[in-house]
């Protein structure tokens, strides 16, 4: 009896989380006139909202920009953060502990304080309306550094020493000997970085004005609040679906890794 109540409660919760997404997708495929009364299925499916959206905003270009920016950022974070993590874990040098504490300390710094000055830096470096503005500030990440450091500390010393004896440089040890052994960490950092970059919208709104450089979330946001959707629900929802879809597809394949990544980022405090 108690079990049944638990199942009912959990199922109601699951519906609460899933149904709105179902509704959004079906609504984006419904005739505009039916969205207001839609509960489960429209009388017919239509791509009208999507064709209208494609004719109104360069969403294809925004999709390309988003993929480019997220890929560059993710590659950069994995390369640079692993190098710093490697140095902190396996190299002896003066100032190592200082850098470690700086990393811990800066993690607690609220972004509100750096937002305006960073925008001014972008203006002064002439980077407003460039891809660099979307990528550079996110290229290093304290949390990723700590994850890599932790992973490298867990590596068997013998593996590293053997590679040294074979005459491997540190870069080769890092990227060729150790990387294959820390795939889970790379996946976690990769998913977190890609997702954060994909979903980042405040910074994009600040540094990008040129429509051809806008990423998906910015484009969809401006489309939604600006007048161009002409208060048509269908096109707004279609653009939201297109923004959600890539991450949702990735989630359906790598669900476990997504949950693990996000949980580890929550546990950092």
């Amino acid at each position: 009896m108690k079990k049944i109540l638990i199942y009912i409660f959990l199922s109601l919760a699951a519906i609460t989380f899933l149904y709105p997404f179902y509704w959004m997708i079906v609504a984006s495929l419904s005739p505009e006139s039916e969205i207001g009364g839609l509960l489960f299925l429209p009388s017919e499916f239509t791509f009208a909202s999507y064709t209208q959206m494609f004719s109104k905003i360069p969403i294809g270009r925004a999709l390309f920009n988003s993929i480019l920016v997220a890929t560059l950022t993710t590659t950069g974070v994995i390369a640079f953060s692993s190098m710093v993590g490697y140095a902190l874990a396996l190299m002896e040098f003066k100032g190592r502990n200082v850098i470690f504490y700086i990393i811990i300390f800066t993690m607690t710094l609220p972004f509100q304080i750096t937002l305006i000055p960073n925008y001014i830096t972008m203006v002064k470096l002439d980077l407003v309306d460039t891809y660099a503005a979307l990528v550079l500030p996110f290229l290093l990440n304290s949390f990723a550094i700590l994850l890599f450091r932790q992973a490298f500390l867990g590596m068997p010393r013998a593996l590293i020493d053997a590679a040294r004896v074979d005459g491997c440089s540190d870069l080769r040890i890092l990227f060729q000997v150790l990387f294959p052994n820390i795939i889970p960490t790379i996946v976690i950092v990769g998913i977190l970085t890609f997702m954060n970059s994909w979903n980042e919208v405040l910074w994009a709104l600040i540094v990008i004005r040129d429509e051809s450089l806008m990423t998906m979330p910015q484009m969809v946001t401006l489309f939604s609040v600006g007048g161009r959707a002409e208060s048509q629900l269908g096109v707004k929802l279609a653009s939201a679906v297109l923004l959600a879809l890539p991450i949702m597809i990735a989630y359906s394949f790598f669900q476990k890794y997504f949950i693990q990544s996000m949980a580890s980022s929550g546990l950092k405090e």
Partner: peptide, 16 residues
């Protein structure tokens, strides 16, 4: 199911 909204952009959730 519970985790799905976490990974989706705040923009999507807000428009929805």
């Amino acid at each position: 199911a519970f985790f799905l909204p976490v990974i989706v952009s705040g923009v999507v959730v807000t428009i929805l």
